[in-house]
Amino acid sequence: MSTGLRIADITVRLGSQTILSDIALTAAPGTVTGLIGPNGAGKSTLMRAMLGLTPLASGTVTFDDTDLLAMTRRSRAQFTAFVEQSGATDARLTAREVVMLGRIPFQSVWQATPAPADGAQVDAALAEVAMAPFVDRLYHTLSGGEQQRIQIARALAQQPRLLILDEPTNHLDVHAQLTTLDLLQRRAQAGATVLLALHDLNLAAAFCDSLVVLHHGRQVAFGTPEQVLTPALLRQVYEVDATLLRHPGSGRPLIAYDLPA
């Protein structure tokens, strides 16, 4: 029985400065969890801490009741994938070769070429992000949105049960934002635990099952979008006034910002 991601009392310090304190949250398999908060709130640091990229001053991170930070990077990479905000490279790699990077955690040092199973995973991932026609294009010649989809496909090729993404909708047009989030939501419905940082609160409300709000390195709210997104919280965290509506179709919260007078 998969219990998903459990974060208990994480504190991260950089020198004498406390970057994150006492973060505690859970993310169940099959759900999408949104990490929101203004710039500098600690979203990226929290994601890096979960991935073992930033040392913790205290706290634990477990996935399916296993200590995520105690295992080797390689075994963690066999079920955890991360998509960074920017995926830039000077390397001359085709789109397919970039997605194939996602198979590195599964390949032996002695293996000269990828196994057929690797190829199958890569093709499936490329099809899932609708980038199959672009496989032979050089990655650096693709548009920002196409590169983002290739990075997501690379993460999917890692067969992740835990998928973490930092601002996956950045630099995407509206259509691409919606298809990307829809794709991630379907991955969650297929059993993955998806956690992503988002700037756009309406997208967060529309696609996430639960939201974590960070503010100055502290967790100020954790719950469903309905519970979390209140005029008071938006005032406190984002210093904006807003009216909360409901989407006529989905019934999800919809934020209408009140413009400064």
Binding site: R48, L51, G52, L53, T72, R73, R74, S75, R76, A77, Q78, T80, A81, F82, E84, G87, A88, T89, A91, L93, V98, L101, G102, I104, P105, Q107, V109, W110, Q151, Q158
Partner: peptide, 23 residues
Amino acid sequence: LLSGRALDAFAFGDTAAATLGVE
């Protein structure tokens, strides 16, 4: 030569390499 595949993981930087399992 044997570390060639790990070097590929550096194409998108240290963080990407680390999350692909490279020490």
